[in-house]
């Protein structure tokens, strides 16, 4: 497949269980596709250069920086974003509830990426692993508010509460 500069192309992808499509330039990032074309603004951009991890989403189950992928590269793939974590009626999922119960967020900006990254960690380590492993798991997502302590406590609590 080839697309000329400036030409638009239709991208189809599954987001939170629904197939969506958008017509975008090849240069449009996956993050901008989510935010601007699909109105899923829970994926946040803080540095746009892949350092802060605030745009982490799960691509076929694996965490990736949505700011460093082009939307066209997600053709046919399956994404989980923060909007897919709560029940349809808005009831918080267990991990979200643990963040709520343990003050795992302040300004809330890194929270979607933290949740998704923790979600991935708990899938691989259902018992949470050690505190050091939890720290390691979220080390690629920068938070400027919390100092991380209560985020780690939240993930630990979610692990202890079980799936």
């Amino acid at each position: 497949m080839s697309t000329a500069a400036g030409q638009r192309v239709t991208v189809h992808l599954e987001v939170n269980g629904l197939w969506r499509e958008a017509v975008v330039e090849p240069r449009r990032t996956l993050a901008d596709l989510l935010r601007e074309d699909l109105d899923l603004t829970g994926t946040h951009l803080a540095c746009e250069t892949g350092v802060c991890g605030n745009c982490n989403v799960l691509l076929d189950g694996e965490s990736v920086r949505a700011c460093l992928m082009f939307a066209v590269q997600a053709e046919g793939r399956s994404l989980l974003t923060v909007e897919g974590l709560a029940a349809d009626d808005g009831t918080l999922g267990d991990l979200q509830q643990a963040f709520h119960d343990h003050h795992g967020l302040q300004c809330g900006f890194c929270t979607p990426a933290m949740l998704l990254t923790a979600h991935e960690h708990l899938r691989e380590h259902p018992d949470g692993g050690t505190d050091e492993q939890i720290r390691e798991a979220i080390s690629g997502v920068l938070c400027r508010c919390t100092g991380y302590e209560q985020i780690i406590a939240s993930i630990r609590a979610a692990a202890e509460a079980g799936p």
């Binding site: 899923l40 603004t41 829970g42 923060v82 709560a86 979200q96 709520h100 929270t111 979607p112």
Partner: peptide, 14 residues
């Protein structure tokens, strides 16, 4: 918290 946990924070760029 709940709005942030659901990704509904409505920051300026949203």
């Amino acid at each position: 918290d709940p709005r942030f946990l659901r990704g509904q924070g409505r920051y300026i760029d949203d």
